[in-house]
């Protein structure tokens, strides 16, 4: 009988505890959610091969920069501003045996282009 009463008392205590769970502090919930955001895994890789390659390069902005740099370099090679050697023309000229054209390339008195010209003249 006493044991039954003791069990009933315990059950009543458990019921009371279950009915009044400790309230989670707002600060704890905020910290848990903040941790979740900080640990959020990056979205898993999806999309086509081209899309993933583009992402690996840094996305469209990076690709735009690369295209611009390539175009500028190509243009400088074809039509260099005054004061820069016309390397493109020198290279194309080396593909021929016309020393007259090489003479036109020599925009400086001296330097490697002049040396090239002299080498051809020696022949």
């Amino acid at each position: 009988m006493d044991k039954d009463k003791a069990d009933q008392s315990l059950d009543a205590l458990f019921d009371a505890a279950r009915a009044a769970p400790p309230k989670v502090p707002d600060a704890l919930m905020a910290a848990v959610v903040a941790d979740a955001a900080a640990q959020m895994p990056a979205p898993r890789g999806g999309g086509s091969l081209v899309q993933r390659a583009l992402a690996a390069l840094g996305g469209l902005p990076a690709l735009g920069g690369m295209v611009t740099a390539t175009c500028v370099g190509f243009w400088l090679g074809l039509a260099p501003p005054e004061g820069l050697p016309d390397v493109g023309e020198a290279i194309w000229a080396l593909g021929t045996e016309n020393t007259t054209e090489l003479a036109m390339v020599d925009v400086y008195d001296g330097g490697w282009i002049s040396g090239i010209e002299e080498g051809f003249e020696d022949e």
Binding site: M29, V33, A36, M40, P41, P43
Partner: peptide, 15 residues
């Protein structure tokens, strides 16, 4: 869903 980048799922699971 959280592992796939769903922040709302994280809040629900935390709750």
């Amino acid at each position: 869903r959280y592992a796939a980048g769903d922040a709302a799922a994280a809040r629900l699971l935390a709750a």
